[in-house]
Amino acid sequence: MASKNKYSFSTAALYPRSAAESLRLIAEAGFSHAELMPQCFADARENFAKAAEKSGIHVASIHYPLAMFSMLYNSSEGMVQEARRFGNELVRLCSALGTEVLVIHPHEMQKDPILKQRLEEPIRDNILLLAEACEAVGLILAIENSPKGVGRSPEGLLSYIASLGNNKVIRPAIDTTEACEAGIDPAEFIIKTQPAHLHLSDHAGNEKHIPAGEGENDWHAIKRALEGYQGYYTLEPLYRYYIDEPVKKLAKAFEFLAGLFEGNA
């Protein structure tokens, strides 16, 4: 879907509303793009595309459902098969919607050789098969940084991605709040990783995933770090900030992006 900008908003921030209602609200606020966070299996099936298309918004990215993460990162033989079927279904939904990015998190790395073989290898294979399915439809599989584990630093995230092999569809995704939680300036994280996808929110003290522009982040430094960035500017604040007055707050979020990135998106 053509658009004059790449401003996007995550349905995760509108929980517990339904995915279909969330997409409608995001579209009404002026966004042309959204990131879908499925909250149930029905939201992740290919036939959800019909409901999504009614909103008139382009689902530019899909975040692997947090509610189903334990499927992807599970070594049980039966669940491995379920995870692979679910992953293929999710990729079919992406293809039906014209989605460009599928976001996941790094898995837990094991140091003990036995645990690595028994626990980590099946999970690694799940991710590699998901990457193959993404590649088949021209989809980026974006690995998001995390404040804990291998993805907490730029070097760690890039090393993790490299460990998955020379697959060009596997790219970094940077969450500004997750960078702050790891004690790293978001602009520095962006410069060092050159992400293919962004999750934007603010941070202040112990408060995290605050609506962008309402915390302590240096957004002008982040903007400078994003020079040459070609992806979507996806706002992903915590849902508790949008429980009430979502229309008003979504409009404010759009205005923040437009004001910051005018002529840069």
Rank of each mutant, 00 (worst) to 15 (best):
T176F: 02
G151C: 06
E178D: 09
P211A: 07
K249Q: 02
D175C: 12
L257T: 00
K208W: 02
N166S: 15
P186M: 06
I140N: 15
G205W: 08
H209W: 03
E214P: 14
V150D: 09
Y239G: 05
F256W: 01
L235N: 03
Y233L: 15
G215S: 03
Y160W: 05
I140R: 15
F261S: 01
Q194W: 15
L257V: 04
E216D: 13
D244M: 14
D185E: 13
A187F: 00
L158H: 03
E144H: 14
L164C: 06
E144R: 11
L157M: 08
T234M: 08
C180E: 03
E262R: 14
K249L: 13
G156A: 07
A173W: 00
R152A: 11
D202G: 10
L260Q: 01
P186K: 08
L226D: 00
S153C: 06
K248M: 11
S153V: 11
F256H: 03
N166V: 11
Y229N: 00
Y241T: 02
A182K: 09
E255C: 07
E207F: 10
R171T: 04
N264F: 11
L141P: 14
S201C: 11
E214A: 15
I222A: 01
K248L: 13
I191D: 02
K148D: 13
E178K: 12
E181N: 06
L164K: 04
D244F: 15
A225W: 00
Y233Q: 05
Y232Q: 05
P147I: 12
H203P: 07
T193I: 12
G259T: 02
P186L: 02
Q230D: 13
G151S: 09
I140W: 14
L157I: 06
Y232M: 02
Y233H: 05
I190D: 01
F261E: 01
K249M: 09
K168Q: 14
G259Q: 03
I184Q: 06
P147N: 12
L157V: 09
D175H: 10
H197N: 14
G149S: 09
L200S: 05
A265G: 04
A173L: 13
L257Q: 04
S153W: 08
T176C: 06
E144K: 09
S146P: 09
G213P: 07
A212I: 11
